[in-house]
């Protein structure tokens, strides 16, 4: 795809103390650096190498990503809800690009 686009699925509302599941997906070719082009030259590696999920600025879950993660990387993880606030999801690309997405969470 032309430009990487993140998708996030997380509840908009939750109870205090509840453990919620968060799913994320981003469009990315995850070029492994192991493949060769038609001329036999190695295609340079270009992957999403790091993912960070923060809530109200604090880290909840992070991943160091290797080229063995599939194209269009999918990550699912959890968070225990203590307070209302905002998620920030961050994907870091080998080429220096940083993709982010924010989402609010209400506590009932």
């Amino acid at each position: 795809m032309a430009k990487s686009k993140p998708r996030v699925k997380a509840p908009k509302k939750a109870d205090k103390g509840e453990v919620i599941a968060i799913k994320t997906l981003i469009s990315h070719k995850m070029e492994s650096g192991q493949r060769k082009d038609k001329k036999g030259d190695l295609i340079p590696r270009q992957i999403i190498n790091r993912f960070t999920a923060k809530f109200n600025g604090e880290s909840v879950f992070e991943v160091d990503i290797e080229p063995a993660i599939s194209a269009n990387p999918y990550l699912q993880f959890n968070m225990r809800v203590e307070e209302a606030g905002e998620f920030e999801f961050i994907w870091e690309d080998d080429d220096g690009s940083v993709y982010t997405k924010k989402q609010k969470l209400d506590v009932t």
């Binding site: 795809m1 686009k5 998708r7 699925k9 799913k23 997906l25 469009s27 194209a71 269009n72 999918y74």
Partner: peptide, 12 residues
């Protein structure tokens, strides 16, 4: 529909 990566294209 969320986990299906084909929806990245549908969304585009």
């Amino acid at each position: 529909d969320f986990e299906n990566p084909g929806f990245l294209w549908v969304e585009q």
